[in-house]
Simulated assay, not measured.
Amino acid sequence: MAASKGFEAQSEALDALRHLTPEAAEPGLRKALGQRNNFLVAKAARLTALQNLRSLSGALAEAFHRFLQDAAKSDPQCWAKNDIAKTLAEFEFQDAELFLAGMRHIQLEPTWGGPSDTAGALRGTCALALVQCREVRSHQLLLWFTELIADKVLTVRVNAARAIEQVGSDSAALLLRLRAELASDEPELLGACYSGVLRLEGPQAIPWAARFLALGDDASAEAAIAIAETRTPEAFAILRATFDKTARTNQWFRSALLSAIALTRQPEAAPFLLDLIDRSPHDRQDAVEALCRSNPNRETVEELTKRGHRCP
């Protein structure tokens, strides 16, 4: 009972620091970062970010390395390491070795189904943080991220793809192309690869991305959204052509294509969807929903209203 009250008092004392000036809060946060309790340190790290106390970067780094030791016991669920890494990334901390250690950290903890890795979020956070370490060459970053894009955890693979995109080089685009070509992963990862290539290479990569529309599956829907986000006439043209060729038996993919067409924001998109509402009962509801989700302008809303439809 006494220990519980002590913990509650320390947690409340941390909450009180939120309302102080950064200068007044710094001593209390520095002390809290030295605590053994991972929940309190995680809370202190979040408050350090809120107060923008970059002067505590060294204390944050010390705490991070401390919780890497006997990690499953000292920092179950990686609570402290996660929040410390996020804060140091926000501060643009330049110690690449710290983030590399986090990117490679695997923390197996006991669960009913057997040991479970709780460090996936940490690996992804640290990978993204490594990109802003100015002394690390892009070639070295890509070598590290190549390790991570084969991680067992899907969210880590997705963050690895996003980190590769942020490297921003021709080599990064080629690596994302290669990963997408393997086509042996979850749609979310493939979507990150499609989007990354299109953002790095621009509209000239649309024909490449359009190849992945052919199957009409979840990954194809991710490709459609990635193409739409280029906001180009080429995107509208290829998505409409794909819609026209997609059989009505694949209504789910037709609906995904209509959402992507609306997302292109091209002048032809709204008239096409409104015409579809008028002439195709089979696609009417999907076209209405696509327009409503696209943040339509007043003219489009008025046209929908004339047809008896309203956006939520």
Results as ranks from 00 to 15, higher is better:
Gln204Pro: 00
Glu229Ser: 10
Gly191Lys: 05
Leu154His: 05
Thr232Val: 01
Leu198Tyr: 11
Val156Ser: 01
Asp151Cys: 02
Leu154Lys: 12
Ala235Leu: 08
Arg179Tyr: 11
Leu175Pro: 00
Ala180Thr: 06
Leu178Lys: 14
Arg179Ala: 15
Ala150Gln: 13
Ser184Asp: 15
Arg211Phe: 09
Leu178Asp: 15
Ile164Lys: 02
Ala214Trp: 07
Asp217His: 09
Pro187Val: 04
Asp217Phe: 08
Leu182Cys: 01
Gln166Glu: 14
Ala214Val: 13
Ala172Thr: 05
Asp185Ser: 14
Ser169Asp: 07
Ala163Gln: 01
Arg179Leu: 07
Ser171His: 13
Ala221Gly: 14
Ile149Phe: 01
Ala219His: 09
Val197Phe: 05
Glu186Cys: 00
Arg157Ile: 03
Arg231Ser: 12
Leu174Cys: 00
Asp185Ile: 02
Val197Ser: 08
Arg179Gln: 15
Gln204Glu: 15
Leu176Lys: 03
Ala210Phe: 12
Ala192Met: 04
Leu174Phe: 06
Pro203Cys: 11
Ile149Gly: 01
Ala161Leu: 00
Ala192Thr: 05
Ala150Ile: 07
Ala183Asn: 15
Glu188Ser: 14
Asp217Met: 04
Tyr194Leu: 10
Ser184Ile: 00
Ile164Gly: 02
Leu176Glu: 07
Arg199Asn: 15
Leu182Trp: 11
Asn159Cys: 04
Trp144Gln: 12
Lys152Asp: 15
Thr155Val: 07
Asp217Arg: 06
Asp151Ile: 02
Pro207Arg: 10
Ala224Ser: 11
Pro233Ser: 13
Ile164Gln: 04
Glu234Leu: 11
Ala180Phe: 06
Leu174Gly: 04
Ile149Asp: 02
Leu182Lys: 13
Asp170Thr: 13
Val167Ala: 06
Asp218Ala: 15
Leu198Gly: 10
Ala163Arg: 01
Val158His: 02
Phe145Gln: 08
Leu215Thr: 12
Glu222Lys: 11
Thr232Met: 07
Leu148Asn: 04
Ala235Ser: 15
Ala161Cys: 12
Pro203Met: 09
Glu201Cys: 05
Leu213Val: 13
Leu175Cys: 00
Glu234Ser: 14
Arg231His: 15
Ala224Tyr: 07
Leu182Ala: 13
Gly202Arg: 03
Glu165Ser: 03
Pro233Asn: 11
Asp151Phe: 01
Gly191His: 06
Leu200Cys: 05
Ser195Thr: 10
Leu190Lys: 03
Ala173Leu: 05
Cys193Val: 05
Gly191Ser: 09
Ala173Tyr: 10
